[in-house]
Amino acid sequence: MNPVTITIDGLAIPAQEGMTILQAAQANGLYIPNLCNHPDLDPAGLCRVCVVKIDDWKIAISCKQPVKEGMVVSTEDPEVQRVRKNTVELLVANHPMTCLTCERDGNCELQRVARYVGLEPTDLNRYRRSVRSLPMDRSNPFFEIDHAKCILCGICVRTCDEIQNINAIDFVKRGVASLIGTMGNKPIAESRCESCGECVVRCPTAALSPRHRVQPMREVKSICSYCGVGCGIRLGVRGDQIVGVQGDRENPVNGGSLCVKGRFGYHFINHPERLQKPLVRKDGELVEAEWDEALDLIAEKFSQHKGEQFAALASARITNEDNYLIQKFTRAVMGTNTIDHCARL
Protein backbone atom coordinates (compact mmCIF):
# COMPACT_ATOMS: atom_id res chain seq x y z
CA MET A 1 0.00 0.00 0.00
CA ASN A 2 1.41 3.30 -1.06
CA PRO A 3 1.47 6.19 1.35
CA VAL A 4 -0.47 9.25 0.26
CA THR A 5 -1.08 12.61 1.81
CA ILE A 6 -4.48 14.21 1.99
CA THR A 7 -5.65 17.44 3.50
CA ILE A 8 -8.56 17.54 5.89
CA ASP A 9 -9.73 21.02 6.80
CA GLY A 10 -6.32 22.38 5.94
CA LEU A 11 -4.42 19.80 7.93
CA ALA A 12 -2.17 17.55 5.87
CA ILE A 13 -2.35 13.99 7.13
CA PRO A 14 -0.60 10.81 6.03
CA ALA A 15 -2.72 7.91 4.80
CA GLN A 16 -2.39 4.68 2.90
CA GLU A 17 -3.81 3.97 -0.51
CA GLY A 18 -6.90 1.82 -0.07
CA MET A 19 -8.01 3.64 3.06
CA THR A 20 -11.21 5.58 3.14
CA ILE A 21 -11.24 9.22 4.15
CA LEU A 22 -12.87 8.26 7.44
CA GLN A 23 -10.22 5.63 8.16
CA ALA A 24 -7.47 8.10 7.39
CA ALA A 25 -9.09 10.68 9.66
CA GLN A 26 -9.53 8.20 12.50
CA ALA A 27 -5.98 6.92 12.11
CA ASN A 28 -4.85 10.50 12.66
CA GLY A 29 -7.10 11.11 15.62
CA LEU A 30 -9.61 13.26 13.74
CA TYR A 31 -13.30 12.80 14.45
CA ILE A 32 -15.70 12.83 11.55
CA PRO A 33 -19.18 12.20 12.93
CA ASN A 34 -20.63 8.90 11.78
CA LEU A 35 -23.25 6.41 12.86
CA CYS A 36 -23.34 3.40 10.59
CA ASN A 37 -19.62 2.86 10.38
CA HIS A 38 -17.94 0.14 12.44
CA PRO A 39 -14.28 -0.78 12.21
CA ASP A 40 -15.06 -4.50 12.05
CA LEU A 41 -17.44 -4.15 9.13
CA ASP A 42 -17.46 -3.10 5.52
CA PRO A 43 -18.64 0.49 5.21
CA ALA A 44 -22.32 0.78 4.37
CA GLY A 45 -22.76 4.48 3.77
CA LEU A 46 -26.35 4.58 5.00
CA CYS A 47 -26.47 7.17 7.75
CA ARG A 48 -25.02 9.93 5.55
CA VAL A 49 -23.72 11.68 8.65
CA CYS A 50 -20.07 11.33 7.64
CA VAL A 51 -20.50 13.48 4.54
CA VAL A 52 -17.57 15.64 3.55
CA LYS A 53 -16.79 17.81 0.57
CA ILE A 54 -14.01 16.66 -1.71
CA ASP A 55 -11.86 19.00 -3.72
CA ASP A 56 -14.37 21.78 -3.25
CA TRP A 57 -16.99 20.34 -5.58
CA LYS A 58 -18.41 17.01 -4.61
CA ILE A 59 -20.26 15.86 -1.52
CA ALA A 60 -19.20 12.35 -0.63
CA ILE A 61 -19.48 10.01 2.30
CA SER A 62 -16.11 9.71 3.97
CA CYS A 63 -16.71 6.12 5.10
CA LYS A 64 -16.67 4.82 1.55
CA GLN A 65 -14.68 7.36 -0.41
CA PRO A 66 -11.11 6.16 -0.94
CA VAL A 67 -8.29 8.59 -0.34
CA LYS A 68 -6.25 9.87 -3.25
CA GLU A 69 -2.95 11.68 -3.24
CA GLY A 70 -3.50 15.37 -2.85
CA MET A 71 -7.19 15.06 -2.06
CA VAL A 72 -8.58 18.10 -0.28
CA VAL A 73 -11.34 17.29 2.17
CA SER A 74 -13.57 19.70 4.02
CA THR A 75 -15.70 18.57 6.92
CA GLU A 76 -16.97 22.06 7.67
CA ASP A 77 -18.08 23.22 4.25
CA PRO A 78 -21.48 24.96 4.61
CA GLU A 79 -23.26 22.44 2.39
CA VAL A 80 -21.71 19.57 4.34
CA GLN A 81 -22.75 21.17 7.60
CA ARG A 82 -26.30 21.62 6.39
CA VAL A 83 -26.75 18.10 5.06
CA ARG A 84 -25.14 16.61 8.14
CA LYS A 85 -27.14 18.70 10.57
CA ASN A 86 -30.44 18.10 8.80
CA THR A 87 -29.73 14.39 8.75
CA VAL A 88 -29.01 14.28 12.46
CA GLU A 89 -32.05 16.47 13.17
CA LEU A 90 -34.20 14.04 11.20
CA LEU A 91 -32.90 11.16 13.30
CA VAL A 92 -33.39 12.98 16.57
CA ALA A 93 -36.90 14.08 15.60
CA ASN A 94 -37.60 10.41 15.12
CA HIS A 95 -36.00 9.26 18.36
CA PRO A 96 -37.46 8.92 21.86
CA MET A 97 -36.31 11.63 24.25
CA THR A 98 -35.77 9.29 27.14
CA CYS A 99 -32.03 9.70 27.45
CA LEU A 100 -31.84 9.84 31.24
CA THR A 101 -33.33 6.42 31.69
CA CYS A 102 -31.67 4.97 28.63
CA GLU A 103 -29.16 2.20 28.98
CA ARG A 104 -26.80 3.93 26.57
CA ASP A 105 -27.00 7.43 28.04
CA GLY A 106 -23.55 8.94 27.88
CA ASN A 107 -22.31 6.19 25.62
CA CYS A 108 -24.66 6.74 22.71
CA GLU A 109 -23.39 7.46 19.23
CA LEU A 110 -26.51 9.43 18.37
CA GLN A 111 -25.95 11.67 21.38
CA ARG A 112 -22.33 12.10 20.40
CA VAL A 113 -23.17 13.05 16.85
CA ALA A 114 -25.99 15.36 17.93
CA ARG A 115 -23.65 17.15 20.28
CA TYR A 116 -21.00 17.45 17.58
CA VAL A 117 -23.28 18.99 14.97
CA GLY A 118 -24.67 21.28 17.66
CA LEU A 119 -28.39 20.57 17.72
CA GLU A 120 -30.42 23.41 19.17
CA PRO A 121 -33.91 23.10 20.63
CA THR A 122 -35.10 25.80 18.24
CA ASP A 123 -33.85 23.79 15.28
CA LEU A 124 -35.56 20.67 16.53
CA ASN A 125 -38.83 22.44 17.19
CA ARG A 126 -39.21 23.06 13.49
CA TYR A 127 -39.68 19.36 12.90
CA ARG A 128 -42.75 17.17 13.15
CA ARG A 129 -41.81 14.68 15.81
CA SER A 130 -42.69 11.07 15.26
CA VAL A 131 -41.37 8.17 17.25
CA ARG A 132 -42.21 4.71 16.17
CA SER A 133 -44.41 2.85 18.55
CA LEU A 134 -43.64 -0.77 17.93
CA PRO A 135 -43.74 -3.27 20.77
CA MET A 136 -40.34 -4.20 22.12
CA ASP A 137 -39.11 -7.65 21.28
CA ARG A 138 -38.31 -9.22 24.63
CA SER A 139 -38.35 -12.79 23.41
CA ASN A 140 -34.64 -13.31 23.87
CA PRO A 141 -33.55 -13.94 27.46
CA PHE A 142 -30.31 -11.98 27.08
CA PHE A 143 -31.15 -8.87 25.14
CA GLU A 144 -34.12 -6.87 24.02
CA ILE A 145 -34.94 -4.97 20.86
CA ASP A 146 -36.47 -1.51 20.96
CA HIS A 147 -37.36 -0.49 17.43
CA ALA A 148 -38.15 3.03 18.56
CA LYS A 149 -34.50 3.61 19.31
CA CYS A 150 -33.27 1.96 16.13
CA ILE A 151 -31.64 4.33 13.65
CA LEU A 152 -31.41 1.61 10.98
CA CYS A 153 -27.67 1.92 10.65
CA GLY A 154 -27.61 -1.77 9.75
CA ILE A 155 -24.56 -2.51 11.90
CA CYS A 156 -26.41 -5.42 13.49
CA VAL A 157 -27.42 -6.76 10.09
CA ARG A 158 -23.88 -6.55 8.80
CA THR A 159 -22.47 -8.08 11.98
CA CYS A 160 -24.82 -11.02 11.66
CA ASP A 161 -23.83 -11.35 8.02
CA GLU A 162 -20.19 -10.42 7.70
CA ILE A 163 -18.86 -11.65 11.03
CA GLN A 164 -21.26 -14.33 12.19
CA ASN A 165 -22.52 -15.46 8.78
CA ILE A 166 -25.80 -16.34 10.43
CA ASN A 167 -28.07 -13.80 8.73
CA ALA A 168 -30.80 -14.00 11.33
CA ILE A 169 -31.81 -10.38 10.73
CA ASP A 170 -32.16 -8.01 7.84
CA PHE A 171 -34.01 -4.90 6.80
CA VAL A 172 -37.71 -5.62 6.41
CA LYS A 173 -40.51 -3.46 5.01
CA ARG A 174 -39.91 -0.21 3.15
CA GLY A 175 -39.56 3.50 3.69
CA VAL A 176 -40.36 4.82 7.16
CA ALA A 177 -41.87 1.47 7.99
CA SER A 178 -38.43 -0.11 7.52
CA LEU A 179 -37.15 -1.99 10.49
CA ILE A 180 -34.63 -4.60 11.35
CA GLY A 181 -36.41 -7.87 11.62
CA THR A 182 -36.19 -11.60 11.23
CA MET A 183 -37.45 -13.91 8.52
CA GLY A 184 -41.20 -13.44 8.52
CA ASN A 185 -40.68 -10.69 11.10
CA LYS A 186 -41.10 -13.18 13.92
CA PRO A 187 -39.74 -12.58 17.43
CA ILE A 188 -35.97 -12.87 17.50
CA ALA A 189 -36.12 -15.96 19.69
CA GLU A 190 -38.01 -17.79 16.96
CA SER A 191 -35.44 -16.89 14.32
CA ARG A 192 -32.15 -18.57 13.57
CA CYS A 193 -30.44 -16.07 15.90
CA GLU A 194 -27.80 -17.80 18.00
CA SER A 195 -27.86 -15.14 20.74
CA CYS A 196 -24.14 -14.46 20.40
CA GLY A 197 -24.84 -10.81 21.22
CA GLU A 198 -22.30 -9.53 18.70
CA CYS A 199 -24.95 -7.18 17.33
CA VAL A 200 -25.83 -5.98 20.80
CA VAL A 201 -22.29 -4.88 21.57
CA ARG A 202 -22.05 -2.99 18.29
CA CYS A 203 -25.42 -1.22 18.39
CA PRO A 204 -24.71 2.52 18.50
CA THR A 205 -27.91 3.26 20.42
CA ALA A 206 -30.00 1.22 22.81
CA ALA A 207 -32.09 -0.39 20.10
CA LEU A 208 -30.33 -3.59 21.08
CA SER A 209 -29.49 -3.71 24.73
CA PRO A 210 -28.60 -6.41 27.21
CA ARG A 211 -31.34 -7.26 29.65
CA HIS A 212 -30.91 -6.50 33.32
CA ARG A 213 -27.65 -4.75 32.60
CA VAL A 214 -25.68 -3.67 35.63
CA GLN A 215 -22.75 -1.34 35.11
CA PRO A 216 -19.57 -2.89 36.45
CA MET A 217 -17.34 -1.03 38.89
CA ARG A 218 -14.24 -2.68 37.44
CA GLU A 219 -13.21 -5.17 34.81
CA VAL A 220 -10.81 -8.08 35.02
CA LYS A 221 -9.20 -9.69 32.01
CA SER A 222 -9.47 -13.44 31.87
CA ILE A 223 -10.20 -16.38 29.61
CA CYS A 224 -13.59 -17.88 28.90
CA SER A 225 -14.09 -21.24 30.55
CA TYR A 226 -16.45 -22.74 28.02
CA CYS A 227 -14.50 -24.45 25.26
CA GLY A 228 -11.08 -25.15 23.92
CA VAL A 229 -10.96 -22.00 21.81
CA GLY A 230 -9.98 -19.90 24.84
CA CYS A 231 -11.52 -16.56 24.02
CA GLY A 232 -10.23 -13.53 25.86
CA ILE A 233 -12.85 -11.91 28.06
CA ARG A 234 -13.23 -9.03 30.46
CA LEU A 235 -15.23 -9.95 33.52
CA GLY A 236 -17.33 -7.08 34.79
CA VAL A 237 -17.36 -6.95 38.57
CA ARG A 238 -19.60 -5.02 40.88
CA GLY A 239 -19.37 -5.64 44.57
CA ASP A 240 -18.49 -9.31 44.85
CA GLN A 241 -20.55 -10.34 41.84
CA ILE A 242 -19.77 -10.96 38.20
CA VAL A 243 -22.24 -8.69 36.37
CA GLY A 244 -21.19 -9.06 32.79
CA VAL A 245 -18.74 -10.41 30.27
CA GLN A 246 -17.23 -8.53 27.35
CA GLY A 247 -15.07 -9.91 24.58
CA ASP A 248 -11.44 -8.85 24.83
CA ARG A 249 -10.70 -7.13 21.55
CA GLU A 250 -6.98 -7.35 22.22
CA ASN A 251 -7.01 -11.12 22.44
CA PRO A 252 -5.61 -12.68 19.26
CA VAL A 253 -7.84 -15.73 19.54
CA ASN A 254 -11.22 -14.08 19.37
CA GLY A 255 -10.52 -10.39 18.75
CA GLY A 256 -13.49 -9.62 20.96
CA SER A 257 -15.95 -12.10 19.51
CA LEU A 258 -17.85 -14.34 21.89
CA CYS A 259 -20.58 -16.93 21.62
CA VAL A 260 -23.79 -17.07 23.59
CA LYS A 261 -22.26 -19.13 26.39
CA GLY A 262 -19.18 -16.99 26.69
CA ARG A 263 -21.05 -13.70 26.71
CA PHE A 264 -24.15 -14.55 28.64
CA GLY A 265 -23.43 -17.84 30.41
CA TYR A 266 -21.79 -16.43 33.53
CA HIS A 267 -24.71 -16.58 35.92
CA PHE A 268 -23.64 -19.96 37.27
CA ILE A 269 -20.82 -18.17 39.12
CA ASN A 270 -23.25 -16.38 41.42
CA HIS A 271 -25.74 -19.23 41.48
CA PRO A 272 -27.28 -19.96 44.90
CA GLU A 273 -26.64 -23.67 44.46
CA ARG A 274 -22.87 -23.12 44.47
CA LEU A 275 -21.16 -25.36 47.01
CA GLN A 276 -20.01 -23.11 49.83
CA LYS A 277 -18.96 -25.60 52.47
CA PRO A 278 -17.49 -29.09 52.43
CA LEU A 279 -19.98 -31.94 52.70
CA VAL A 280 -19.28 -35.20 54.46
CA ARG A 281 -21.47 -38.28 54.26
CA LYS A 282 -22.82 -39.16 57.68
CA ASP A 283 -25.38 -41.89 58.17
CA GLY A 284 -25.83 -42.04 54.43
CA GLU A 285 -26.50 -38.31 54.10
CA LEU A 286 -24.19 -35.60 52.84
CA VAL A 287 -24.05 -32.94 55.53
CA GLU A 288 -22.13 -29.71 55.81
CA ALA A 289 -18.81 -29.97 57.60
CA GLU A 290 -15.84 -27.83 58.44
CA TRP A 291 -12.83 -27.94 56.18
CA ASP A 292 -10.67 -29.47 58.86
CA GLU A 293 -13.02 -32.35 59.34
CA ALA A 294 -13.34 -33.04 55.64
CA LEU A 295 -9.63 -32.73 54.92
CA ASP A 296 -8.63 -34.85 57.89
CA LEU A 297 -11.00 -37.56 56.75
CA ILE A 298 -9.58 -37.45 53.25
CA ALA A 299 -5.99 -37.51 54.48
CA GLU A 300 -6.79 -40.49 56.65
CA LYS A 301 -8.55 -42.46 53.91
CA PHE A 302 -6.05 -41.63 51.20
CA SER A 303 -3.22 -42.66 53.47
CA GLN A 304 -4.83 -46.10 53.65
CA HIS A 305 -5.25 -46.40 49.86
CA LYS A 306 -1.91 -45.50 48.41
CA GLY A 307 -0.53 -47.15 45.31
CA GLU A 308 -2.81 -49.20 43.11
CA GLN A 309 -5.76 -48.67 45.47
CA PHE A 310 -5.91 -45.03 44.51
CA ALA A 311 -7.06 -43.27 41.37
CA ALA A 312 -7.47 -39.61 40.53
CA LEU A 313 -9.51 -38.00 37.83
CA ALA A 314 -8.37 -34.48 37.12
CA SER A 315 -10.31 -32.06 34.99
CA ALA A 316 -10.14 -30.41 31.63
CA ARG A 317 -11.86 -27.39 33.16
CA ILE A 318 -9.49 -26.40 35.90
CA THR A 319 -6.22 -24.56 35.48
CA ASN A 320 -2.85 -25.90 34.48
CA GLU A 321 -1.61 -25.21 38.00
CA ASP A 322 -4.53 -27.15 39.52
CA ASN A 323 -3.91 -30.07 37.20
CA TYR A 324 -0.20 -30.05 37.78
CA LEU A 325 -0.68 -30.31 41.50
CA ILE A 326 -3.25 -33.09 41.23
CA GLN A 327 -0.93 -35.23 39.12
CA LYS A 328 1.99 -34.37 41.33
CA PHE A 329 -0.05 -35.37 44.36
CA THR A 330 -1.14 -38.61 42.70
CA ARG A 331 2.35 -39.55 41.62
CA ALA A 332 4.48 -38.18 44.41
CA VAL A 333 2.17 -38.64 47.40
CA MET A 334 -0.13 -41.50 46.39
CA GLY A 335 2.61 -43.38 44.54
CA THR A 336 0.62 -44.26 41.42
CA ASN A 337 0.37 -43.05 37.85
CA THR A 338 -3.36 -43.73 37.78
CA ILE A 339 -4.44 -40.24 36.95
CA ASP A 340 -6.60 -39.41 34.00
CA HIS A 341 -9.19 -36.86 33.05
CA CYS A 342 -12.06 -36.30 30.69
CA ALA A 343 -9.97 -35.38 27.65
CA ARG A 344 -11.49 -38.24 25.78
CA LEU A 345 -15.11 -37.23 26.34
Partner: peptide
Amino acid sequence: GQCVPCRL
Protein backbone atom coordinates in the same frame (compact mmCIF):
# COMPACT_ATOMS: atom_id res chain seq x y z
CA GLY B 1 -35.57 2.96 3.75
CA GLN B 2 -31.86 2.34 3.89
CA CYS B 3 -30.53 5.90 4.04
CA VAL B 4 -31.59 8.49 6.54
CA PRO B 5 -32.20 11.54 4.30
CA CYS B 6 -34.58 9.66 2.03
CA ARG B 7 -36.29 7.54 4.69
CA LEU B 8 -36.84 10.27 7.26
